[in-house]
Amino acid sequence: MQKLAAAENVLRTALHRSPLLDNRPYEIFGQGSRVNNTYLDPASDIDLVLMLEAPTADYGWAEFRDDVVATLAESYTVRMGRRCVNVDDPGSQFGEMVDILVATQHQEGVFFLDQEGRPIVNFPKQHRRNGDDKDRRTGGRFKQVVRETKRRRLPVLPEAPSYLLECLLYNVPDEVYRTATPGDALAWLHRFQHEDPGGFAALPCQNGINRLFGSGPDQWDAGEAARIVDVLRQL
């Protein structure tokens, strides 16, 4: 968490130096495996959200994104990734590779466009809060199983998204985690998918608001998720 806090401070200092963002209200907070304490590699990227509060008709996501990129480019090597502004210079003041999701406030969540211009609304604060609550209810077993499952998938399914795995495992009932191994949690998901494929396809994300499966740019295919579960279960 020290690295995350340090990166937040570096970003805040960089933004304060720019007249482009004078009087623009924004919030910076962490997301992803580091802030959720489910990361495997201490050198993994730091994921931050930079959220414009109270966007207006003449200053919304696109204008904010352009001003943020212009500001950071004055001091750092940056590029636009599929969804985030990537700071690719580990020798900079950030000291790490940093991904910054530039977004605008949208009700209780955040709004942004991906590289193809498709709108996405997500809820990173709810994701973190729900994960922390489940970890407390399960005596720390939930996040332990998430980390073990991510580690298990690396040799055979490195392309399996960490976010998908975490959300799938979040839907496993708390009582399974009281004595769970990764195999127990994956076995529950495997049984649930075979016994109730409709219920499996309707599973929510960890934020409890978005659906995990569907045709949206931030959703997955239920059949492919079932295949990933089945492969991991047999390891």
Score class of each variant (00 low, 15 high):
residue 199 G to S: 14
residue 47 D to F: 01
residue 50 L to N: 04
residue 86 N to F: 05
residue 30 G to H: 00
residue 15 L to W: 11
residue 35 V to E: 15
residue 144 Q to V: 06
residue 159 E to T: 15
residue 231 V to Y: 06
residue 60 G to S: 12
residue 210 N to S: 14
residue 62 A to M: 03
residue 50 L to T: 03
residue 40 L to A: 08
residue 28 I to C: 08
residue 129 R to M: 12
residue 193 Q to S: 14
residue 176 V to Y: 05
residue 117 G to H: 09
residue 145 V to G: 03
residue 214 G to F: 11
residue 47 D to G: 00
residue 118 R to D: 13
residue 81 G to V: 11
residue 15 L to E: 11
residue 132 D to P: 01
residue 177 Y to R: 04
residue 65 R to A: 07
residue 15 L to N: 09
residue 228 I to L: 14
residue 143 K to N: 10
residue 208 G to A: 09
residue 227 R to C: 10
residue 149 T to F: 13
residue 90 P to C: 11
residue 16 H to N: 12
residue 128 R to T: 13
residue 28 I to T: 04
residue 71 T to Y: 09
residue 189 L to A: 06
residue 229 V to N: 08
residue 80 M to C: 03
residue 65 R to N: 09
residue 153 R to M: 14
residue 97 M to P: 00
residue 16 H to I: 08
residue 184 D to I: 06
residue 233 R to V: 07
residue 122 N to Y: 00
residue 183 G to T: 09
residue 41 D to A: 02
residue 206 Q to D: 15
residue 108 E to W: 02
residue 61 W to F: 15
residue 174 D to Y: 07
residue 53 E to A: 06
residue 201 A to H: 06
residue 87 V to F: 10
residue 80 M to F: 01
residue 207 N to R: 00
residue 52 L to F: 01
residue 211 R to C: 04
residue 1 M to P: 03
residue 146 V to Q: 04
residue 205 C to P: 01
residue 94 F to A: 05
residue 45 D to R: 00
residue 204 P to F: 08
residue 28 I to F: 04
residue 229 V to F: 13
residue 215 S to M: 09
residue 18 S to Y: 10
residue 135 D to R: 06
residue 4 L to G: 00
residue 6 A to N: 10
residue 58 D to M: 04
residue 46 I to P: 00
residue 35 V to Y: 06
residue 153 R to I: 06
residue 92 S to V: 09
residue 154 L to P: 05
residue 98 V to E: 12
residue 87 V to A: 11
residue 176 V to M: 08
residue 147 R to K: 14
residue 40 L to W: 10
residue 5 A to M: 04
residue 230 D to M: 10
residue 163 Y to L: 12
residue 147 R to I: 08
residue 224 E to P: 02
residue 22 D to N: 15
